[in-house]
Write a protein that binds this DNA or RNA. Sequence first.
DNA 1: TAGTGGTCTAGACCACACA
DNA 2: GTGTGGTCTAGACCACTAC
Lengths: 241, 241
Amino acid sequence: MTNTMDGGPLYKSVQRALMEQLASGELKPGQLIPSERQLATEYAVSIGTLRKAIDELVENRILIRQQGKGTYVASHDRERLLFYFFHIVPQVGIKSYPLVEAVFFHKSTIDTEAAQRLGLALSAPSFHIRNKLSVEGKAVSVDDITLDQIRFEKLNAPLFKERPNTIYNLYQEVFGITVVRTEERLRAEPASEEHAKLLKIKTGAPVLVIRRVAFDMRDEPVELRISTVNTTEHEYFAELL
Amino acid sequence: MTNTMDGGPLYKSVQRALMEQLASGELKPGQLIPSERQLATEYAVSIGTLRKAIDELVENRILIRQQGKGTYVASHDRERLLFYFFHIVPQVGIKSYPLVEAVFFHKSTIDTEAAQRLGLALSAPSFHIRNKLSVEGKAVSVDDITLDQIRFEKLNAPLFKERPNTIYNLYQEVFGITVVRTEERLRAEPASEEHAKLLKIKTGAPVLVIRRVAFDMRDEPVELRISTVNTTEHEYFAELL
DNA sequence: TAGTGGTCTAGACCACACA
DNA sequence: GTGTGGTCTAGACCACTAC
């Protein structure tokens, strides 16, 4: 491969080329990509260089290598969500997948905070969706999701509510948007009356508020999700290194 | 290098050998390790294999590569702490290093939670240290630290209070204990009278409580730190992928 | 048995730091 | 200039999967 753009390392050029195929949807989630030998020939680089290009994509969980089978484009499923994007765990006992119930699905103009976080104009049309999450029958979180109506044009309540899989899987399957990373900001706040009612706690009781912005493969913000969490029996868990 | 232990990959054996030198203190923080070519010869492996052994240690920030200079053993300094282990940021404005003031330094028997988290017996002797952290003159966090008196035998108040650098740097320099990863569990709770007074907020106001366990190179828990954070002007920030 | 990713080699050359 | 890490090559062989 001739060193496209800049003057950086060759493997970075190969990586960008692959990334472009992924971001454009030329290579779809769940799909098997060509073998390393084939790609090495195609891009006219050595097998070592080709592997180095893929290494970082595998680390970022954009591709998944399976010895003997091949390399796949990662797709969002329950396991991935639970493991990488859902950080609420019971204070005692083991982590499990939450039951998600829809509270409402609205179309409205975007609020100031969401507009800023998603990089949209102040009066942009948006979806505002509220879900209630329960673990073992107990309400643990109320999630308020804001999405750009332009970007998620075909979205509607039935499509959203009857999704067969996770929300991120829906974004991926229906809109071709793959969430690859998130930024979370956490605060302790008194529960509003609305949220307290859903969580079955007292108004003003301390709740953990998580503001999460999700980014796609082009590193553009796609979703703002504000989770209001009852931490009397659960907690937020993070490992840092 | 002959494949020590198990039957895993050769580069893992080399990695374990290096790791052992690091954990034992044979290679000290800040020190330059032998060049890749030297190590490759020493372990009788190819340069590629040797680099692969080092790659993961560099990713885990145990070693630091510097082109043209060499590879160093990572040491804890203010920048590293700020970047990797201090996650409190202002809601507006940029992150900065906190001012740390000692509140007290006690010797006492360990409490139930700390014993469990640190894997110690219920009546083990421990240090209990409380600090107040301020950013731009405002109290943002009260940190309650629990340490094993056996493991940190020579520790005393003056040594702790007059440390020239960060707390983790003290652990490293004086006790040869390098913190390589932490686990954090977060909850929203009402502020106790004690903590509220130090944070200059009302008793019972929502505060973010962070329970952090720090692990050393052998992956043994070494410190429990409970941070009680006032999130009216600051927040906890995490990037996830 | 054929095809895939995983490991390993023994070099070469480049980019950078420092004296 | 010398020595370091960073990139790249052109293979070989191993471990695993699926037919």
